[in-house]
Amino acid sequence: MITHPRTEELAQAVALWIDQIRPSLDPRNAFLARVAANAMATIGREITQGPAAEAEAVRLMAGLLSHEGDFAELNTELCERIRAGEMTVETPGLLAALTVMAKNQIAIDQPNYKPEGTAIA
């Protein structure tokens, strides 16, 4: 991959530009511009954190399902097994694995969100 600039730096540059022009926009467009800047930040995080998050999800799901596969295959099978009632909250390791996957995903999607159970200082 090219490093000068890296892809996440391009996303960051666009986000910064949006923030620069935001004060000149009407309220509706200023709001949408903030959403757009957030989208660029999400893209940046997905580029930097996404591969490790996906690799960990694949490893965890392969462990739960006792065989290898790519993300889409394993994810589909996991959904089917839960839907069929073959895996439940009682299944050893299931909730622990889903918790790790949820934490990795929210760190990309909405890092400022404070999920249920978060201690507030």
């Binding site: 709001f31 949408l32 959403v35 757009a36 957030n38 989208a39 999400t42 909250v89 909730l95 889903l98 918790t99 949820a102 934490k103 995903q105 929210i106 990309i108 999607d109 909405q110 969100y113 999920p115 249920e116 159970g117």
Partner: peptide
């Protein structure tokens, strides 16, 4: 057409982060 809509799709993970805790607690 609004950019807001696809970004709201990335809030599903908020509810998932809540749900895993609720499922653990019962």
């Amino acid at each position: 057409k609004s950019v807001e809509r696809p970004m709201i799709g990335r809030r599903v993970s908020e509810t998932e982060a809540d749900l895993v805790v609720l499922l653990e607690e019962g």
